[in-house]
């Protein structure tokens, strides 16, 4: 399923790109994250509990920051399991500077579920993905504020 959106982030685009390109900060920004295991500057694993609307589903994912162009683009690919289900995702964020000193993030997500979650979530997957990405951007922003 393809989901897309656009978000305004009140932080400079360079800082936002830095936060999204850093596996430790990116992993820590995942909503409801329990653990993050950074393997190198592009790969990390994370466990989190995603609220699906039908309870919390444990998610164990391996992520790779597969593509990055400084200050403008990040693509993150992840795969893993959610309970007995399999999850694969590819999220691209195209960043741009806004006039007020903030940033805009135009994002697209291709998310594929295998297992009963594909049934449970077909109705609310777009909202869930949007919520996750907004959450990442929000935490990245907070982390950026804290680091300054």
């Amino acid at each position: 399923m393809n989901v897309s959106g656009r978000s305004a982030v009140p932080m400079p685009v360079s800082e936002l790109w830095t936060a999204l390109s850093d596996p430790a900060r990116l992993g820590g920004a995942l909503p409801h994250v329990d653990t993050v295991d950074v393997r190198d500057d592009a790969n990390f694993s994370a466990t989190s509990r995603v609220t699906t609307g039908l309870g919390q589903t444990p998610l164990r994912m391996d992520f790779e920051i597969a593509d990055r162009r400084e200050g403008e683009h990040v693509r993150i690919v992840g795969s893993g399991v959610a309970g007995e289900n399999e999850v694969w995702m590819s999220v691209s964020l195209d960043l741009s500077a806004e006039g007020d000193g903030g940033s805009a993030a135009a994002w697209t997500a291709d998310v594929r579920l295998r297992g009963v979650l594909s049934s449970l979530l077909q109705r609310n997957l777009p909202a869930l993905v949007a919520d996750q990405i907004e959450g990442v951007l929000l935490v990245a922003q907070q982390a950026g504020s804290g680091s300054r």
Partner: peptide
């Protein structure tokens, strides 16, 4: 079912 054989409505929600 989708073309991959994923059942898209396995709860009473759908």
């Amino acid at each position: 079912y989708d073309s991959d054989g994923q059942l898209l409505n396995a709860t009473f929600m759908d």
